[in-house]
Write a protein that binds this DNA or RNA. Structure first.
Lengths: 342, 1335
DNA sequence: TTATTATCTACCGACAATATCAATAATTAGCCG
DNA sequence: TAGCTAATTATTGATATAAGTAATAGATAATAT
């Protein structure tokens, strides 16, 4: 049992790098109550946890007190936090890594080279029951990394190569809104499709603010999240720009099989003109796409619909058609374009 | 009834909006259902009123030094004077606010379009809009005249016409007075009607004419000067038949034509013609060859209609150029050009005439009947006497006049014919050929697109005629007037060529950016339209003349020739960018609809090959850094057909080298090509720049600039065939050679990693492939560019040609024709030689050798050493000439500039073959380059002794090398550092490794204001291989960059002070505001936006306006997508950073440009051929000594005036009543005073004082001071404002004080520029004796 | 008014984001006795 | 048909987009507090 950090401890941290962390033990306990991780990890005695951008690590402490997992690694490369650990977590049994969670190399190093943290590889027929990823990406700028982690689920690489590894991520509420936007929502974006196609994502908790107000009420009702007050978070003093409304997502990867390259290409291009009827938008897949798709789909009503109304399944259907197109352009062509000259 | 109730306008509606709105209401009942005016103005949306205003005319009076103009006029050869002109407020257009100006421009283009398409009603409503723009009123009559001239031709009688005018000017356009042009229109129409009704001598006609003549106060002569209105017949009738105008009232250049009583237009007796011909010939003192030669030329304008379609196969085949065939030669664009060149090949008669020349040359050159090249250059070279040469050139010139016209005007026709020809040929061979032949495809697209386009044009016309009641497509309302201007056939051809040309541009490998495509397509249409207009205007004056009379044509031609150079005041109308985009997109979307290509693919499931057809183009998007980018993709199948090379289509036929001397520059819009309009200055659509140039042009202040540019344009060139042969051999080989990359069909991408590979692996794969794609694209574009160059060179083999020039905004000259010119790379330079040859002579031979050494890279040793160097390498040189590619030594290939080296080797060896090499006729340009020209000017300005000697301004026995010098200083400084600190590893490293090359780029770019990090990266590029580690090498580089900066500062102290002074001036000016600025632009309590750009005039009076402003872009809807384009007329605050960074280099460049132009003029006076590449000057070897002398003298002449002082004087006056924002310590007395005054002001006003108030008070004070009444002046003197109190604050507080102090008060203070730094001891006159100044 | 954060980084020739949605302005349609 | 409101259409401004952020580091402008 490691005592949760006190306000005095935490006041050592001066800068939060625009991130936000829940530090109230009570709120954290509530959250874990709701998560019911026991259902997945049982007694947790084989559970390994990777805690990315762990920050003040209050959540890690509460978690570990509760579940006593086999291995718990905190990763953060920001001096405010690593120094804080140095001073306050010396006696904990956390494994601390000062590497950059942003850098893919950090994981290769830890797992493949130094073998300091080696998760078990499990088949994809169930959620991984010995490996959990926790993380905090609450700065808006980290949205890119969040999307990449989501993408890793689709690619089955990075930490997701070990199986369907659950992720508990604190993310900006605005990002969560995009990710969870259902079909026919105006918020629907390509990343919503990533989320819907590759994961089962749920809102567990969120801060109440103007961002959370923008969430679709029905959606929130469905998740029935825990409302977190800013008083249970750090930093306490913040300006408008550093408010960082945030939201905890429980992300369970799904089992799926598909040609990701084609799928990416099709979704990306169609979602550019998401409110344009398919019949008009489809040609942007390549010269002659209209002819081929119209013939293959053979459903004028479908062609009249707009991409933002399509479900994940419908996009898979479209990317299957794309796959069958003999004259399809190389989906990687445009990845190499557009660089500046000397 | 007019609607009288105007709804209250909304908040955001600005002045212009309101204006438009009210007009709309006024005009409603004139136009029908559709509101034309809304349409008129719909492209005008952003309506902020301007705050860019040049100083008003009150200021201007005092600015113009009265003696300046006279002085200049009387002594055109005058040296540079310390006087300057400001060109402010001299033009109405300048004093327009920018927003108004934009409205005017938009309306102009619309007016032009509507009139050309005869939408008179609509045109009239546009006129009304123009009339409503108050600031435009003064010149409104010109617009009205334009309109009136168009509609006047439809009047049945004179009464109707004058009634219309009467009504317009009294009812609709109150207060507008007719001017001389209005009168000219009335007269012309009256005469025309009279002629038709055969009552010229009728009394009423005479009465009408007399009445009209009396309408304008400007006098008969002025009225008669409208040669764009009055025709030759009119002049004749007025002068000869009616005797209403006198001889001297007729414009001089056509007086001769009119005065000849015996020529009537109806019947020209053959005797008369002979007489004329005789007179003409006598006058020119030509012999019979020339007389005959005149028949070489047919009047192309008159013959155009009746001319049979070109027969491509025959023409092209008969005059096959005798040169190595190039790979990819069979490309579209070049065929067009070649065809036009060949298509005008000599007919039998012409050949005969040419054969009459007394050639002394091998038969193959002579025999024009042989199916070989007509190589004018060989012919010319082989003529024996100067007389014959001169005669030959005259003949060629006349012959080329028409070829030039064809080249500029008929290129699209030629392309189209070519396609059809290829299609028919392919059809004859069967379906397969059609599939294979690119041109056949293009023809098919063309035929399919044409009906679509015609239908669209019909729709547009219906819309414009209000026939259609249903809503038009929203974009059509904007583009409709413009789409009806150009022949649809031409538009199809243009848009097809445009799309093919843009393949692989903008970083897209199989396509192009949509934005760029639509805009350039629109621009091309506009250019075509403009060119047609020019053509129309040209023949206007003579349009009534009987065209059938064959003999008379010659006469006409002569008249035209004299008129050609006289096209004054050409169209200043430009289509708004949005219109270009819309026009372009409608055409492109049509092409996308019809253009298809056969394609081949593989069924992913069965694996079978599948054939089909697909659109050749498709519209799509890409993401670039998460940002969308519209692209037009080209189907890979078509890309394949283009064989990996970009099509040659983009060689805009209008912009090739010219076959005749360019039209001389006479004003800012007139010069260069004959049928495509170019502007003196390459303004980036900046209205501010244009306004100043126009003002300068109108006041005839920049004639010297024109002179200089004309010299550059008159230099005649031809292609160096021997180099061409070598280059084409290398080219066809397809392998990399020197800087020519090898042929590569597709990039060799790395295979895709497994889908579940680690992200880092995927990323590095992407990264590497991106690099591969980049390199591939770079190589291809390089090869493409080379291909252009070679193709143009090939087309112009044996031709005599010229490069028309214009200037960038600093005054540096550039050829108008892209790709192939003397500013190009080593290869294109080597392909160019002077058409005229000059005997080497003693000096020439020597300089040819020096030149060779310079090109090789041996240019840092004394002249004699260079001569010696060449003499020591004669074996290698001979080897290079005998066997350039497979010689023993391949010496030339190791040169700095290999191709030019080879060219010079050949010239030298040829000369040495002669018994007396000094008698060799040389065509090779020999260069004289300044040693770091920017620093030369800086040193002269700063009077630096050390600096001046390092850049060879001071006579010396050997040339100095700045780069070496700087490197040495750096090394010495490092040495000291090591002595002080033996552990300084970096210093030690560089003491060992430092060389000239490492510092060269940094020294060079230092003049351009390179920053520390920029220099660091440059140096890093040089050294990172030595160190390997990236972070380490950057660390080292930064260290050295600092050291280099210090060293430069050390040795060019004076120069540096100047540079700093320029920078500080710029700082202050760009943070200043006009006292009388639009107060509304200042937000409540906010700081005003800075709008003042740096403006100065060069020693040649060219006004230079730095165009750096924040750009504001808007999305514009087009048929394909929205495009994001900037509105050039938007009023934006300046970009202070760029203003500051750009000013020092721009100022220096404006000086070196002046130097060049002055030198050019001088050299031409001395009879030299002259060309320049900014700071490299070219002439014949024999003339180098003269040129060098001229260069030095002109440099001295330029710098004899203290140019910095001149600049300061100019700034002081130009920015006289400007106010800058500054900070002073709160603790100072001045601050206290200002605060106190502010408090009293606040009490006076009863509220807190704003910046606006402060400005208002100061303005009041100045107004009082300038008042006529003594009382007021006295009041003004007594008045104290916060700003008057702040006078002198800049000098009062030093930089340090400002930095150190925490508590600062922001104040407004009159703009004051820092004192000029003291000049060093260097006397610029010593340059006259400095041999190595340029070498 | 001051502290933090974003931007930009050598001149010229030279060359470029876009779809969508919500809010608001402008225009048209419709209404009635 | 005048004069009003309702309905429709056009315009404008804000926002999201993708998804390694190649390296650098220091001055300065812009923005938020």
């Amino acid at each position: 049992m490691f005592k949760p950090l006190t306000a005095t401890n935490l006041s050592e941290i001066k800068v939060f790098y625009k991130f936000r962390y829940v530090v109230s033990p009570r709120v954290l306990e509530n959250i874990f109550d709701k998560l019911r991780l026991e259902d997945t990890y049982g007694d947790c005695k084989d559970l390994k946890v990777m805690d990315l951008n762990a920050g003040p690590a209050q959540q890690s402490i509460i978690f570990n007190n509760r579940y006593r997992c086999k291995q718990h690694l905190l990763m953060d490369n920001r001096p405010q936090f690593t120094n804080f650990w140095e001073r306050n977590l010396k006696k904990s049994h956390f494994q601390m890594s000062p590497q950059d969670p942003y850098d893919w190399e950090s994981y290769l190093m830890l797992i493949d080279h130094q073998k300091l943290f080696v998760p078990e590889k499990q088949p994809r027929d169930h959620i991984h029951n010995k490996f959990l990823i926790m993380g905090n990406l609450t700065d808006k700028k980290e949205e890119g990394l969040l999307m990449q982690w989501y993408n890793c689920v689709g690619q089955k690489n990075w930490l997701q190569r070990f199986g369907r590894v659950k992720m508990l991520l604190w993310v900006p509420t605005s990002s969560a809104r995009k990710l969870l936007a259902p079909a026919s929502s105006t918020q629907r974006a390509k990343c919503s499709l990533v989320c819907e196609t590759f994961t089962d994502s749920k809102i567990i908790a969120l801060t109440q603010d103007e961002e959370s107000d923008l969430f679709d009420k029905k959606l929130l009702d469905k998740f029935d999240p825990i409302w977190v007050d800013y008083s249970s978070t750090l930093p306490q003093k913040f300006s408008k720009t550093k408010k960082s409304p945030m939201c905890l997502l429980e992300i369970d990867p799904l089992d799926f099989e598909l040609n990701k390259g084609n799928w990416d290409y099709v979704t990306q291009h169609l979602m550019i003109q998401k409110s344009t009827p398919l019949i008009d938008a489809i040609e942007s897949l390549g010269p002659g796409a209209t002819d081929f798709f119209t013939k293959q789909i053979n459903d004028p009503e479908f062609m009249k619909r707009c991409p933002y109304t399509f479900s994940a399944e419908e996009f898979i259907y479209l990317s299957d058609i794309y796959f069958r197109w003999p004259f399809k352009p190389d989906v990687f062509m445009n990845l190499f374009n557009a660089q500046q000259e000397e | 009834m007019l609607r009288t109730i105007v709804k209250p306008s909304c908040h955001s509606a600005t002045i212009t909006n309101r204006l438009i709105h009210s007009q709309y209401i006024q005009i409603r009942n004139i136009t029908t259902k559709n509101s034309v005016l809304r349409d008129n103005m719909s492209i005008i949306s952003d309506t902020r009123t301007s705050t860019i205003q040049p100083p008003d005319t009150v200021f201007q009076q005092s600015f113009l030094r009265s003696n300046f103009l006279n002085k200049n006029k009387n002594r055109p050869q005058d040296n540079i004077s310390a006087e300057f002109k400001l060109f402010t407020g001299t033009q109405n257009s300048v004093s327009l606010t920018m927003a108004d100006k934009r409205d005017v421009m938009s309306l102009w283009s619309l007016l032009e379009a509507c009139l050309q398409s005869n939408y008179t009603e609509r045109s009239f409503s546009i006129l009304k809009s123009l009339y409503e723009i108050k600031s435009h009123r003064k010149t409104f009559i010109d617009d009205y005249n334009y309109y009136f001239n168009h509609i006047a031709k439809d009047f049945k009688n004179v009464k109707l016409m004058s009634d219309k005018l009467q009504k317009d000017l009294t009812v609709h356009f109150v207060d507008i007075q007719p001017n001389d042009k209005t009168v000219a229109i009335l007269i012309h129409q009256t005469l025309k009607l009279a002629r038709k009704n055969n009552d010229i001598m009728n009394n009423s006609t005479r009465q009408n004419l007399e009445l009209f003549f009396s309408m304008s106060s400007s006098g008969f002569k002025k009225i008669c000067s409208n040669i764009d209105i009055l025709t030759l017949d009119d002049y004749k009738t007025l002068h000869l038949d009616l005797d209403m105008i006198r001889d001297y009232q007729i414009p001089t250049n056509i007086r001769d034509l009119v005065a000849r009583k015996n020529i009537t237009m109806k019947n020209v007796s053959s005797e008369d013609v002979k007489k004329i011909e005789k007179e003409h010939n006598d006058k020119n003192d030509h012999n019979d060859i020339v007389v005959n030669s005149t028949n070489l030329v047919t009047d192309s304008v008159t013959s155009k209609a009746s001319e049979p379609p070109m027969k491509l196969d025959e023409d092209v085949k008969t005059v096959e150029k005798d040169a190595t065939k190039l790979m990819n030669v069979d490309t579209l664009g070049m065929r067009v050009i070649k065809h036009t060149l060949f298509g005008l090949s000599l007919n039998e008669e012409q050949k005969e005439k040419i054969a009459k020349f007394n050639f002394e040359a091998p038969d193959n050159v002579l025999d024009v009947n042989d199916k070989r090249t007509v190589n004018f250059y060989e012919m010319y070279k082989n003529l024996k006497t100067d007389e014959e040469k001169e005669m030959f050139e005259t003949t060629l010139e006349e012959f080329n006049q028409n070829r030039q016209q064809t080249l500029e005007v008929r290129a699209t026709d030629a392309a189209k014919e070519r396609w059809r020809h290829d299609f028919e040929e392919a059809k004859a061979r069967g379906d397969l050929s059609i599939q294979k032949s690119l041109n056949s495809k293009l023809w098919k697209w063309y035929t399919e697109m044409l009906p679509l386009l015609k239908k669209e044009i019909e729709d547009c016309k219906r819309y414009l005629n209000k026939e259609t009641l249903q809503k038009s497509a929203t974009n059509r309302t904007d583009y409709a007037p413009y789409l009806t201007l150009v022949d649809p056939e031409k538009m199809c051809v243009i848009v097809i060529l445009e799309l093919l040309k843009l393949n692989s541009t903008g970083g897209i490998s199989e396509g192009m950016r949509t934005a760029r495509a639509v805009i350039s397509a629109g621009k091309s249409i506009e250019m075509e339209f403009r060119s047609e207009q020019l053509l129309k205007n040209e023949s206007y004056l003579l349009k009534d003349i009987n065209k059938k009379s064959n003999e008379f044509k010659q006469y006409v031609r002569n008249a035209k020739k004299s008129l050609r150079s006289l096209k004054l005041d050409e169209s200043k109308i430009i289509w708004p960018q949005q219109i270009r985009a819309k026009v372009g997109s409608v055409l492109i979307s049509m092409l996308i609809k019809v253009a298809r290509v056969p394609v081949e693919g593989r069924d992913p499931i069965s694996g079978e090959r599948v054939f089909g057809d697909a659109p050749a183009f498709s519209h799509s998007y890409q993401y670039h850094n998460g940002v969308k980018l519209g692209v037009i993709r080209i189907h890979p199948a078509l890309i394949h057909q283009l064989n990996g090379e970009r099509l040659m289509a983009s060689v805009q036929p209008q912009l090739l080298p010219m076959l005749v001397k360019p039209r001389p520059w006479v004003n800012w819009k007139s010069g260069g090509y004959y049928y495509s309009q170019s502007s003196l200055i390459r303004t980036k659509d900046s209205p501010e720049q244009m306004a100043y140039i126009e003002a300068a042009s109108k006041s005839n202040a920049i004639d010297k600039v024109y002179d200089g540019l004309n010299v550059l344009g008159e230099t005649s060139w031809t292609v160096n065939q021997r180099i061409f042969d070598v280059v084409s051999k290398v080219w066809n080989n397809g392998k990399p050679f020197l800087e020519i990359p090898g042929v590569q069909i597709t990039p060799n991408y790395l295979p895709q990693p497994a889908p579940d590979a680690d992200p880092s692996v995927v990323n590095s794969w992407k990264q590497k492939n991106r690099e591969i794609a980049n390199e591939f694209a770079a190589n291809r574009s390089m090869r493409c560019d080379m291909n252009y160059k070679l193709e143009i060179a090939r087309a112009f083999l044996g031709e005599k040609f010229y490069f028309p020039h214009n200037m960038d905004f600093r005054g540096r000259a550039y050829p108008l024709s892209p790709h192939f010119n003397h500013l190009g790379n080593d290869m294109s330079r080597s392909l160019l030689i002077f058409w005229k040859g000059k005997m080497l002579g003693k000096d020439g031979l020597r300089w040819l050798k020096v030149h060779l050494a310079n090109l090789y890279g041996v240019n840092k040793i004394p002249i004699e050493g260079r001569v010696q160097f060449v003499e020591d390498h004669m074996d290698e040189i001979r080897d290079a000439v005998e066997n350039p590619l497979n010689g023993k030594f391949k010496w030339w290939q190791t040169a700095d500039k290999p191709w030019q080296t080879l060219a010079t080797c050949i010239e030298l060896v040829e000369a040495l073959k002669l018994e007396n090499p000094e008698e060799f006729i040389s065509h090779q340009p020999v260069h004289q380059d300044g040693t770091c020209n920017g620093l030369q000017h800086y040193a002269a300005l700063g009077g630096d002794m050390v600096g001046a000697s390092q850049v060879n301004l001071i006579p010396d026995s050997k040339p100095n090398d700045v780069y070496m010098h700087v490197a040495n200083i750096v090394r010495a400084n490092l040495q000291k550092k090591v002595e002080a600190n033996p552990d300084d590893e970096i210093a030690k490293f560089f003491i060992e490794k430092l060389n000239r090359k490492i510092v060269k780029q940094t020294v060079m770019t230092h003049v351009y204001g390179v920053t520390l990090i920029g220099a660091t990266l440059q140096i890093d590029k040089q050294i990172h291989d030595m160190l390997g580690d990236r972070t380490l090498s950057l660390q080292y580089s930064k260290y050295l960059a600092k050291a280099v900066f210090a060293a430069i500062r050390q040795s060019f102290q004076g120069a540096h002070l100047i540079q700093d002074w320029l920078g500080e001036c710029c700082n202050r000016i760009s943070k200043s505001i006009r006292l009388d600025l639009d107060k509304k632009s200042i937000g409540k309590g906010k700081k005003p936006e800075f709008m003042t750009s740096i403006i100065w005039t060069t020693p040649l009076n060219l006004p230079i306006v730095q165009p750096y402003r924040e750009i504001s872009k808007k999305q514009v809807n087009t048929n394909l997508q929205t495009v994001y384009i900037s509105d050039p007329f938007a009023v934006n605050k300046i970009n202070a950073r760029r203003q500051k960074a750009g000013f020092p280099p721009n100022f220096i460049h404006s000086l070196d440009a002046s130097h060049m132009l002055m030198s050019a003029t001088k050299c031409r006076e001395d009879g030299l051929e002259f060309a320049s590449v900014h700071d490299s000057y070219w002439t014949h070897a024999s003339d180098i000594v003269t040129m060098n002398k001229n260069l030095r003298e002109q440099f001295v002449a330029l710098h004899e005036v203290d140019l910095i002082e001149r600049l300061k004087d100019e700034f002081d006056e130009r920015y006289k009543n400007y106010v800058q924002i500054s900070k002073i310590p709160k603790s100072s007395d001045m601050a206290a005073e200002i605060m106190a005054r502010k408090d009293t002001m606040a009490i006076e006003l009863g509220r807190a004082v704003t910046y606006v108030d402060e400005l208002q008070f100061e303005q009041e004070r100045l107004a009082l001071l300038n008042s006529e009444f003594e009382d007021d002046v006295k009041k003004g003197q007594e008045m104290v404002t916060t700003i008057s109190l702040a006078k002198g604050s800049e000098e009062l507080f030093s930089e340090k004080e400002r930095k150190g102090e925490q508590n600062m008060l922001t104040i407004l203070t009159p703009l004051e520029l820092p004192e000029i730094p003291a000049k060093g001891d260097f006397d610029v006159a010593s340059v006259k004796e400095s041999t190595y100044f340029f070498s």
